[in-house]
């Protein structure tokens, strides 16, 4: 059965507040939601904490609402994820002064490559990935978000438009600008 029919069946079950269906959703989306949050907060531990909260909050929303406002489950999950990250930053800013460098050290320490890989390719891949992740941190939040959604989590334009509450035209322009900005960062580094 095609994937989109399976997704549709799961979404229909969620409208009836089916708990087993929600566990399937967790299995399907835990990695991508974690990744989305990780690129926002830059810390593995924080990303894991926030991701846990996202699924609980999403279930809470599903229990108390009828999902009519959402065409897809993806848009709901990502919106809850965005809002949870914002709440997290607010709490953090109340506790300590915010630091622009927060999280960069964490990126350097995060093992973003599967340790089971061959050591040499692991070192080289890790270096490339780390450079790219660091460059992403230098991007504006809006641009970074667009790139993560489009090229890393592979949402289509329509889905991104629903998550970001923008028109599809705006999303395309945003992605174009984001990619251009990332390329310029890469080219600036090569020149240095």
């Amino acid at each position: 059965m095609p994937q989109n029919i399976k997704d549709k069946q799961v979404f229909n079950k969620l409208k009836k507040k089916d708990k087993d269906a929600f566990i399937l959703v967790y299995d399907a989306y835990a990695n991508s939601i974690y990744r989305f949050i990780y690129f926002k907060v830059g810390s593995k531990e924080e990303a894991e904490d926030i991701a846990s909260q996202v699924f609980l909050k999403t279930w809470d929303y599903i229990r108390n609402n009828n999902l009519k406002d959402y065409k897809t489950l993806k848009s709901l999950l990502y919106k809850v994820a965005r809002n949870t990250v914002i709440d997290h930053y607010r709490k953090q800013s109340r506790k300590t002064e915010s630091s622009l460098d927060a999280g960069i050290d964490d990126i350097n320490n995060v093992n973003i490559v599967d340790p089971a890989q061959d050591i040499i390719s692991e070192i080289s891949t890790k270096a490339d990935h780390e450079m790219l992740v660091l460059r992403m941190r230098d991007l504006k939040d809006e641009y970074r978000e667009a790139i993560v959604l489009r090229y890393i989590n592979e949402l289509n334009i329509k889905e991104i438009a629903q998550v970001l509450d923008k028109s599809r035209g705006n999303v395309r322009v945003l992605i174009y600008r984001a990619l251009k900005a990332l390329k310029e960062l890469a080219e600036d580094e090569e020149r240095e």
């Binding site: 835990a30 990695n31 974690y34 990744r35 990780y38 593995k44 990303a47 894991e48 991701a51 973003i112 490559v113 599967d114 891949t125 490339d128 990935h129 790219l132 992740v133 790139i147 090229y151 890393i152 989590n153 592979e154 990619l179 990332l182 390329k183 890469a186």
Partner: peptide, 14 residues
């Protein structure tokens, strides 16, 4: 090339 590199960041997982 850039997009291809970005795609590989899917390896970031919990």
């Amino acid at each position: 090339e850039l997009i291809s590199q970005l795609n590989k960041l899917k390896e970031i997982k919990p």
